[in-house]
């Protein structure tokens, strides 16, 4: 059985590093990994997503709709956008902090925050909300949202990986001066 994970957010939020950390941690456990990333024009503030597939039986880096065990969302509207990929009963871990696009102020659809949060609560039985504003204030940095979210996903038991696995991947991928902050971010709850 493979574990299927969608990471999603807004270009520049750090979804790619998060998917690499999951991949490193899985590889250290000898689990086969395939991922697909959004790279290019959409990185300039567009909607971005990564597909992460752990396990031998994934033939391809992209998954079908309705097959994700976990949607790890850096932004609530993006969680809703990727929700069709969630399998019935799957888990959503999302930051509660909205990122309002310029288009919402210049004639495009408005950002309906209440509607989006209510929809997530109504549709997702296994929903974990991460107050990223409070996390940023308590950690003293908004730059480790990706690791805060990974910590929440590990504790939700949906990654098939332990906090120690992610920690080892952090040490492998990040310079030592960032370890302390990211260790606190991983443990933040």
């Amino acid at each position: 059985m493979s574990t299927n994970i969608i990471l999603c957010g807004v270009g520049g939020q750090g979804t790619i590093l998060a998917s690499k950390l999951i991949a490193s941690a899985a590889m250290a456990r000898d689990v086969a990994v395939k991922t697909a990333e959004t790279i290019g024009m959409a990185q300039r503030g567009g909607s971005v997503f990564s597909h992460v597939r752990l396990g031998e039986d994934a033939a391809c880096p992209l998954m079908a709709r309705g097959s994700a065990d976990l949607v790890l969302a850096f932004e609530p509207a993006e969680a809703v956008r990727q929700l069709p990929f969630l399998k019935p009963g799957g888990c959503v871990v999302t930051s509660t902090r909205p990122v309002v696009p310029v288009s919402a102020m210049t004639g495009g659809p408005a950002y309906d925050y209440e509607g989006i949060m209510e929809y997530l609560k109504a549709k997702v039985s296994n929903l974990v909300l991460v107050d990223s504003d409070r996390a940023a204030a308590e950690l003293g940095s908004a730059k480790c949202l990706n690791v805060v979210l990974l910590g929440a996903a590990v504790r939700a038991g949906e990654l098939g990986l332990s906090e120690g696995d992610i920690l080892a991947a952090l040490h492998e991928r990040l310079p030592e001066k960032l370890w302390e902050l990211n260790e606190r971010a991983l443990a933040w709850a």
């Binding site: 956008r81 696009p101 288009s103 309906d112 989006i116 549709k123």
Partner: peptide, 14 residues
């Protein structure tokens, strides 16, 4: 289903 209208995110100048 009845998903709320989502904001659109065309790529923008930084």
């Amino acid at each position: 289903g009845d998903a709320p209208t989502l904001p659109v995110r065309p790529p923008v100048l930084c």
